[in-house]
């Protein structure tokens, strides 16, 4: 190897004789290079090693710190914004009364029921419209029109139709969850790679085999996107439904706090919504990690 470089040197670097005392390897450097460029500092490739969870926590923690600072620095009056510490004490007070637990639980239950119903209906409609042209032609225009109606505008009607019990709240939440799940799942079904469907056909998969093994699993990523939207929507509709018409739940708590001007409780409820939003998102992320291993696989174990 060294002999090869030496032999080639006269042709490449005319000034080779001047470098006779140096190691062979330097012969391949162009004659005009200054000595400063001779040694390039080499470094190992280092990837950041901060745990993902810590990275993801930085943002929310910064927001809370900023919030506390804004209050301490009296940027806003305490009639307008209360600090995180005041929110914590409000939480402790409500917890001791038992009001926090009971209202939280009832809101959670409404969201869970509405979500389950809405997702089921959304998936059902998406499968019908996604798989069958006739389903698409008959149902999709109706669904698109219904989607354009603001759900919050339905609140008064829902009360007239379903009274003031649990039904109107659960149904409104379910309605809000149906559309994002429907839209994303339906689009995902229609986006499944035709080449894979063809491959399945040539290898003997018949209609339901194709649906089960190729079309539905292929639509799963889209469904999960829809589920994310649905989770956020479910909480939004929950709070509105409870503020207008309820004797319990987080929205009810906010409404009560407004009449007695208890800012701590109002901020507490909003913070709880934010936390639930974050938790819901984390659950879908976990689901994705479990259901979409095949996609993650390229990142390595």
């Amino acid at each position: 190897m060294a002999a090869g470089i030496t032999a080639a040197a006269p042709g490449i670097a005319p000034g080779a004789a001047a470098l006779a005392g140096e190691p062979d390897i330097t012969l391949i450097r162009p004659a005009r290079t200054t000595s400063r460029a001779r040694r390039i500092p080499l470094t190992r490739i280092q990837l950041p090693r901060i745990p993902r969870l810590a990275l993801r926590a930085i943002g929310p923690i910064a927001v809370i710190a900023l919030w506390q600072w804004v209050c301490v620095a009296k940027v806003f009056s305490s009639d307008e914004v209360v600090p995180p510490t005041a929110v914590l004490s409000a939480a402790r007070q409500l917890w001791d009364q038992g009001a926090l637990q009971s209202n939280l639980l009832i809101s959670l239950q409404r969201v869970a029921e509405g979500l389950a119903l809405g997702v089921a209906v959304g998936v059902f409609l998406a499968v019908i419209c996604g798989l069958f042209r006739i389903g698409e032609d008959l149902l999709d225009p109706v669904i698109q029109a219904a989607r354009a109606v603001p759900i919050l505008g339905l609140v008064p009607l829902a009360i007239i139709w379903f009274g003031v019990g649990e039904e109107p709240k659960v149904i409104l939440i379910a309605l809000g969850c149906t559309f994002p799940v429907y839209l994303n799942t339906y689009a995902a079904i229609r986006n499944v790679d035709l080449k894979l469907v063809e491959a399945g056909q040539t290898f003997g998969l018949r209609k339901w085999g194709l649906v089960r093994k190729i079309i539905l699993p292929g639509a799963l990523p889209g469904f999960l996107v829809g589920l994310r939207f649905a989770l956020v929507g479910a909480w939004i509709i929950d709070v509105v439904a409870e503020e207008i018409n309820a004797q319990s739940g987080l929205g009810y708590l906010i409404n009560q706090a407004q009449t007695t001007n208890q800012l701590g409780i109002m901020f507490l409820c909003l913070a709880l919504y934010a936390i639930f939003g974050l938790l819901s998102d984390a659950i879908v992320r976990l689901l994705e990690r479990y259901l979409l291993t095949w996609r993650r696989a390229f990142k390595g174990a």
Binding site: L196, F203, G209, P217, W294
Partner: peptide
């Protein structure tokens, strides 16, 4: 009994290699 091999492998991404081989059987 026919089998097709396409220009792209067209393996089902969400199935491991073995069930891909036995796809449809």
């Amino acid at each position: 009994r026919r089998a097709v091999v396409f220009q792209e492998p067209r393996l089902i991404p969400w199935q491991r290699v073995l069930p891909n081989v036995s796809l449809g059987l």
